Structures are given as structure tokens and as C-alpha cells.
Simulated scan of single mutants.
Amino acid sequence: MLSDRQIKILEAIISDFIDTAQPVGSRTISKKYPLGISSATIRNEMADLEELGYLLQPHTSAGRIPSDLGYRLYVDSLVYENSISSRDKEIIQSLLLNKIIEAGDIAKQTVKLLTDFTHLVAVVSIPKFNKCKLANLKLIKVSDSKVLLILVTDTGIVKNIQLALSNTEQFVLDKISDTMVSHLSGETIENIDVRSISKMKEKLSMFGNIVDYLIPILRDALKSLNGTELYVDGVSNLLSTFEFSDTEKARHIFDFLKNDNQLVELFDSLPSDKLSIKIGTEIGVELLDDCSIVASSYHVDGNNAGRILVLGPKRMDYGAIVSTVNYISNTLSDVFSGIYL
């Protein structure tokens, strides 16, 4: 257990390091923070905090910087979520509720908002297609040999699948589309199987050959649309931070952020039902040992649907970022659940 004095010193060191990115010495603490103790006493306490694992000394003659353990104590016990101003709330709502229909457009706007507010990297996943409900379906004749199948979910995700289908009139496609919608609308995509699709055949007996062709295609298409879609923005912001001024180090992180499979693994490793803060080695990815992430889930009708994540140096303003992530995730939950639509 740390003493109250040690906790105040640790908090002062972390606050100063977040502001300056420079190792913090005892004289700096005694001058800038009214702790009521001498520089020598602060120096002795800093040595004890280093021995306990809360501080690191990068060079013998330098001051101290927080360790991952120090940041963890700071985040868990000393950081308080900031309140978002009414003006910022209005900005977020106006941009997320500005007649955006497709989920992808909402995600693009969300990552831009997050990078504008935090000046860090933002990643947003949109609801998995197969977990959503089918809201509409349309077959459109593109040419004499091609038809476009358009699937729309209740969360605004739109998928287009090109089919090879010759010599079929649009009125036939309309009849098939209307019948399929009446039978499948409101079902989650993952629950639409061959059996449920086959029930439509008796209603479309006059188009039996076409329906027989469409059923396996629709089944395979639905199976293939179960991946997580990710949107990333603000990667260049890393270059403006002291920790990643080394372009080689930044390049490796850039490569990681461009790899959807690695990002999905990172998302899947986080708790899906609450705000999560991972610091340095806690992330479990060696490339990100100098980073921290703040992540949260958003929901559709009470069910976990996607996540938002902010990534940056461990020396980030946790209170401000947590409040931004929380507010935006709550707003996304409302948007995707149709509260504002």
C-alpha cells in the first residue's frame, strides 16, 4: 500500500509527464505542485516508488517516468472522467445524426470525430452483418446476364452481391424480391437458412427454376457476410507524438493498424460489455508496448453490436478520452437502435 504522500507524488509525476513527455525530477515537483514537502523528501519518495515498480528512471541522471504499473494505479484510482461540454455534445450529435443512413457512413464519421477530439488513432467496428435483422432485399436487373442482389439490415448496413442470371425481366425480379422480403424481413441474418428460404417456393412456384438457382446463392452469400468491418482514422497522428518520432517504430505500428485480421484479434481480446483501458504490455501485442488503448462497446437493441477504440501513447489524457469514448459509444447505441432515426 502506498502512503497518501506517495500517491500525491506519483499523481504529480504522471500529470507532468503527460503534459511534457519529459522525465520528471524532484525539483520540478516541488516547484510546480504545492505538496508542502522538500525536494529532498520528494527525491527519497521517488526512489521508493521506483523500487516498488511504479516509476522508471530512463537514465541515471534523469528524472522518473511512470511504469505500466504506475499508469494502472493512476487510471484505476486517480483519474476521474471529465464531463463533455454541451457544445461538444451538440457537435457529436449533429454529425452522427445528420441524415446518415448507411452504417459505414456512420462509422466513418465516428472515427473522424474521435480523432478530432483526441488527436490520436481511432478504430470503429460496425455491427456484424449476420447478427443484424434483414430490413429489405431487392433484385435489380443490371444487364441481360447480370442481376444485383441488394441486402439492407435494420442497422443500415447495405450489401451488394452480383449474380449471373440471364434473360429475366425486372417484373419477375420484383415479384421474387417482394415475396422474399415478406418472408424474411425481421429475421436475423444468421437465422435465415435454406429451410426458411425454401418455404417461399410454393409462393413462387411459377418462377421455380429461378428460385432454385437463387436459394444456394443466397445461402452462400449470407454465410460469407459474417466478418467484422473496421474503420480506422488518425494513424498519422502518431507521428506528431514524442514516443513515435522514431519513424521505424511508427512504421511497424502503421503496418499493424492496416492489418484487419490483427485488429479484429485485438478487438476480440477486449471485454465486450464495458469500457476497457489497456496499458502497454497489458494489450498483449509487443508492437504496442509503448501504447495504451481506451475501448468501449455500443449496442443495438440491448445487444453488443460493435466497438470503438482509441489508441495512442501511454502518456495520454485518460480522463478526457474516457469521457469522449463513453459519450460517442452511447450515442452510437442510440443511433443504431433507431432512437434518433
Rank of each mutant, 00 (worst) to 15 (best):
C132E: 11
K133G: 08
K133C: 07
L134R: 02
L134Q: 05
A135I: 06
N136Q: 08
N136E: 14
N136H: 11
L137D: 03
L137K: 06
L137G: 03
K138N: 14
K138R: 14
I140R: 04
I140L: 12
V142W: 00
V142M: 12
S143C: 04
D144F: 04
D144Q: 05
D144G: 04
D144V: 00
D144K: 06
S145K: 15
S145E: 15
S145H: 14
V147K: 02
V147R: 07
V147T: 14
V147I: 08
L148H: 01
L148D: 05
L149Y: 00
L149Q: 01
L149A: 00
I150Y: 12
L151G: 08
L151A: 06
L151E: 07
L151P: 05
V152A: 02
D154S: 14
T155S: 13
G156K: 07
G156L: 05
G156W: 13
I157D: 15
I157H: 09
I157M: 09
K159H: 13
N160P: 09
I161F: 10
I161R: 10
Q162T: 11
L163N: 02
L163P: 00
A164V: 12
N167A: 04
N167I: 00
N167D: 04
N167W: 01
N167L: 02
T168I: 14
E169P: 02
Q170V: 01
F171T: 14
F171E: 14
V172M: 05
V172D: 05
V172T: 11
V172A: 02
V172S: 01
D174F: 07
I176L: 09
I176S: 12
I176R: 11
D178E: 15
D178N: 15
D178R: 12
D178P: 01
D178F: 10
D178C: 07
T179Q: 09
M180H: 08
M180I: 07
V181H: 06
V181Q: 10
V181Y: 08
S182Y: 10
S182F: 07
H183R: 15
H183K: 15
S185L: 06
S185G: 05
S185Q: 12
G186L: 15
G186Y: 15
E187K: 08
E187R: 06
E187D: 09
I189W: 14
E190F: 13
N191I: 03
I192D: 10
I192W: 03
I192R: 08
I192N: 10
D193C: 11
V194S: 13
V194M: 09
V194Y: 09
S196M: 11
I197S: 03
I197N: 00
